[in-house]
Design a protein around this nucleic acid. Structure first.
Lengths: 99, 99
DNA sequence: CAATCACATACGCTTGCGCTTATATACGCC
DNA sequence: GGCGTATATAAGCGCAAGCGTATGTGATTG
């Protein structure tokens, strides 16, 4: 599984969003997705770990998950060349409006 | 299917890359993915169409596909808040190196 | 050291994706 | 109108993703 597939899953994006605010324990993350069971969340976290989007640090019997800063950069690198398309598009739109 | 899933597929990213260079007919796109059959490519193009990443324009019996400028912006919007993470990370790294 | 808590893994199931082969549709040319 | 060309859709299949239930593992507490 690569970063793109990892991020394609809505529940995993949700988890990333929570970890963007602050680190959290696995249990907190489980509670934040009430529609899923604990094993389901645990597997999503495993995926995010394997593609390098999060990292884990043990704290006694808990496990603290944190966002890994450079994980999403690969997606950002990919999207960069396309960015000029909607920038150009917006510029053209603006010019049109000014006329 | 949403934009994230659409982009998670490597062949579809390939197609977007080609359309970023210039518009192409369906046939040209089929030729550019020699490992896939014509129907397979056609279905990928259908997906890209349905999520608004490309648009089609008929040209006689051909169909010309073009990148739709604002399709990827939804992904870019999503990634934006995370961008500061690796920016901060790089800044910290640089400060560390300067010491 | 037995019981409990926090989390991960195993297993089986269902569902949807992506593929190929076969067929339909629509245009272009003679 | 009939035939090749360009593209889309249909049908069927294999496989992997995501889920829940059940179980394992390791730390904590009495």
């Amino acid at each position: 599984m690569d970063v793109f597939e990892a991020v394609a899953e809505p529940n995993r994006r949700h988890l990333l969003g929570l970890l963007a605010e602050r680190e959290r324990t696995a249990g907190e993350l489980v509670d934040s997705l009430p529609t899923l069971t604990q094993p389901a969340v645990s597997r999503h976290l495993r995926v995010l770990r394997e593609v390098g989007l999060v990292e884990v640090r043990p704290d006694g019997q808990r496990r603290i998950y944190a966002l890994k800063p450079d994980g999403l950069q690969r997606i950002d690198d990919w999207i960069t060349p396309y960015r000029r398309f909607w920038r150009d598009h917006l510029a053209a739109l603006q010019q049109h409006l000014e006329k």
